[in-house]
């Protein structure tokens, strides 16, 4: 029998190591903030920070859903295309409702409802193909990515769908204003993160998501309905996309074939940088949040310095993803 001081000692050392690993993304974010401040004092001004965080919100909200998907051991490549598609549908619906004489608030609410429903349904389709159809998530969502992307191009007839000016001016503040200087996208992102963390860490559903990703067979033998868990995760991801679109449409008031291009990669990158295991079974919501902020900050810092071309932005993000994974592996393989 190890004596208690030993056990306590060991517990704390294990915890320290876990802490270090979990803290990785936050340390990286802190370092990046210091770097940004050194490079250009503008970086730390409230206006700039709010700007960065507001831009983070779209992919950030999507990445929270992505954390659940990846924790189940799956992946969703269709989120960017889905965002574009539902943006298009939302604009069409709101444009169609405007001449009906409904108050603008009503129009926006109905548009939002449409977006959420279609987002969740699209997620369910992905989920059903994966669970009932027994097709790899990568393949299913690669397919639906193409479908959604082509649908929005079709809806926009190859051009751009624009929201009519009346609704647009009513809807604009959802992106541009907020409470006490904090914009609504930031508030929504924060709320979604808190809810995501509570669901993943504190609820049965979250535990089942983790167990499913850690070992599906063990989960099944533990009376977990693995298919339902996954289905719900894809539906949740669809809802997150809907929410992101609700925040995004007032920004430009338009949708086209290039809307949301690359969002899926940015969201997945945020999840991975945050320390969620790609193979599933271990998800970190707050890691994802800092991963998303890291990616947006790099973009911003490059813009502020001018020392490195902004065209190299993706290259730097790529390096950071690879480094993040390397660091995690080292932390893991330590005896």
């Amino acid at each position: 029998m190890p004596d208690t001081s030993h056990a306590a000692n060991r517990a704390s050392s294990a915890r320290r190591r876990a802490d270090f690993k979990a803290l990785g993304p936050f340390i990286a974010l802190a370092a990046l903030i210091v770097l940004g401040a050194v490079v250009n004092p503008v970086f730390l001004t409230p206006g700039n920070l709010i700007n960065v965080l507001t831009r983070t919100a779209f992919t950030g909200v999507i990445a929270i859903g992505g954390t659940f998907i990846i924790t189940t051991g799956g992946i969703d490549l269709s989120v960017g295309a889905l965002a574009a598609f539902v943006s298009g549908v939302m604009i069409i619906v709101m444009n169609a409702l405007t001449p009906e004489g409904l108050p603008p608030l009503m129009v926006v609410l109905l548009g939002t409802l449409t977006v959420m429903v279609i987002g969740a349904l699209a997620g369910l389709v992905n989920g059903l193909l994966i669970t009932r159809g027994r097709i790899e998530p990568f393949i299913v969502t690669l397919g639906t990515m193409g479908i959604f992307r082509s649908l929005v191009t079709y809806l926009a007839d190859g051009g751009t769908l624009s929201l009519n000016s009346q609704i647009r001016s009513f809807y604009r503040p959802v992106y541009y204003s907020g409470v006490l200087g904090i914009t609504y996208p930031i508030i929504v992102f924060a709320l979604v993160s808190v809810i995501g963390a509570i669901v993943l860490y504190r609820t049965r559903y979250g535990r089942y998501v983790t167990a499913t990703g850690a070992n599906e067979e063990v989960a099944r033998y533990s009376a977990i309905h693995v298919d339902r868990i996954k289905l719900a995760a894809y539906a949740l991801q669809g809802l997150c996309v809907g929410l992101a679109v609700f925040l995004y449409v007032p920004r430009l008031g338009s949708a086209s074939a290039t809307t949301g291009l690359g969002w899926e990669l940015e969201a997945i990158a945020a999840v991975i940088i945050g320390g969620t295991l790609m193979k599933g079974g271990s998800g970190r919501i707050w890691g994802t949040v800092s991963g998303a902020i890291i990616l947006a900050s790099i973009d911003n810092i490059l813009n502020l310095t001018g020392a490195i071309s902004v065209y190299l932005n993706s290259a730097i993000q790529g390096c950071i993803i690879i480094v993040a994974v390397l660091v995690q592996r080292d932390a893991k393989s330590r005896p």
């Binding site: 609820t203 049965r204 559903y205 535990r207 070992n215 063990v218 271990s282």
Partner: peptide, 25 residues
């Protein structure tokens, strides 16, 4: 393969089958 999540600590393994007993939601 079917019994335990070997990469997880003891607690989530112990309660996985009976998790409903530790709270509905």
């Amino acid at each position: 393969k079917r019994g335990l999540l070997v990469d997880k600590p003891l607690t989530p393994n112990l309660t996985l089958l009976a998790l409903g007993r530790y709270g509905k939601i």
